[in-house]
């Protein structure tokens, strides 16, 4: 965020064009309108996740719904069927070169703004089995380490995600805004 504000103060000729960008950035960061704040707060109270992956960590995610003392802190459903109604992608398990086009297809169909959570070491960094990490395909917001992670760690990770959704900060949108910036001009 500091990078873009420094660039916008470079010359007076580009101030008008930069103002629209500043507004867009300010909306995402701090100075937002009241309506957008209410929208993102209500979106955070009931998340809509979509789970991908068949592995040891997938069983732990399915246990979050069931009769469990730790599941009293969570009210979401983790086995939605429709991708078009979902916000969040929860990835667990080994990622292959063969499975990646299907994951990207699912990611494009989801509602905006999009978030992503990586559960376990097999998807965060493919260190155990020397495979791909999900970081190379999709920008990730929250990491939950563990093999498999305990219920307390999962619940804590979802609380962090909830605070992020309430503020409206998603890594995918920041990367988009950074990509659209004009390149630096050489000094004459």
């Amino acid at each position: 965020m500091s990078k873009s504000s420094k660039k916008s103060n470079s010359s007076s000729m580009e101030k008008n064009e930069d103002l629209s960008q500043l507004e867009g950035i300010a909306q995402v960061a701090n100075g937002r309108s009241l309506f957008s704040k209410i929208k993102s707060w209500s979106r955070s109270q009931l998340l809509a996740p979509f789970t991908v992956g068949a592995g040891c960590c997938a069983r732990e995610i399915m246990r979050l719904e069931g009769p469990n003392p730790q599941s009293h802190f969570i009210r979401e459903r983790f086995n939605h069927e429709r991708v078009e109604y979902c916000d969040i992608l929860i990835v667990s398990g080994v990622i292959n070169e063969k499975l990646s086009p299907y994951i990207l297809r699912v990611y494009e169909k989801m509602m905006e703004p999009k978030y992503c959570v990586a559960v376990g070491t097999c998807s965060a960094t493919g260190a155990i089995f020397d495979t791909m990490a999900i970081d190379e395909l999709i920008p990730v917001d929250v990491y939950i380490p563990g093999c498999p992670p305990s219920m307390d760690a999962l619940v804590g990770g979802i609380e962090i995600l909830r605070s992020k959704v309430a503020k409206g900060e998603s890594r995918a949108e920041l990367l988009k805004l950074q990509a659209n910036q004009p390149p630096e001009e050489a000094s004459l």
Binding site: N96, K98, M132, A133, D135, E136, L137
Partner: peptide, 20 residues
């Protein structure tokens, strides 16, 4: 069987975007 070995992040991957 297509298992991808980890490479550096700077390399481009075009083949992934296409369906088989």
């Amino acid at each position: 069987l297509l298992k991808k070995i980890k490479k550096e992040k700077s390399e481009k991957r075009e083949g992934i975007r296409k369906l088989p």
